[in-house]
Design a binder for these strands. Sequence first.
DNA 1: AGCACGATGCTCT
DNA 2: GAGCATCGTGCTT
Length: 205
Amino acid sequence: MVKPLPRDFYDRPTLTVARELIGARLVRILDAAKLVGIITETEAYIGEEDLACHAKSGLTPRTQVMYGQPGHAYVYFTYGNHWMLNAVTEREGFPAAVLIRAIQPIEGVEVISKNRQGRDTFGPGKLCQAMGITKTENGVDLTEANQSLWIEAGIFVPNKSVTIGPRVGLNKTPEPWLSKPWRFLVKDISVTPALASGASVARRP
DNA sequence: AGCACGATGCTCT
DNA sequence: GAGCATCGTGCTT
């Protein structure tokens, strides 16, 4: 039985966590079904200084979770339709998180596909719909496997397979934040199914 | 295959 | 009341 990534994993610089979450397994227990996806895209949001980070306006009811203990889920709602999943990072009291933007489904694929009406899961709103993640999951401890949502070690993705670039979807964020290379994604998406099969090997020591 | 736009509701000013 | 860490559709090349 693989254990969830420990709190120490999240209690580190957010960029390190964002990079190392690439290839990790996002596990969701939904109505007795186990859904698993390999994380293929992340973005870092770091502190009140970062004008793209929700914490730019300080501690509010919404951003409270980001100020808390690392390793918890920060789930919020946007654009009237979509839920976004983040993993809280860095020490308690410092607001930072990694947005999980895309997954490659590897277990419970039928349920995931049904939740998405057969469409893809590459996108932060899409993966939440695929995994049935909503405000109920806000604040869940991702280091506890007895919850309904956690993250565990998956596969090793080498640097040469990871693209680093500026975060996307930040319409009016001023520089220098707009151009910070704080986005990580698996380079060639056609390679991802191979990574997923590699994951099943990695699970069997 | 690329762009424009509307849906839709919560959060902060 | 404006703005949003988006998505899907529908229309244009």
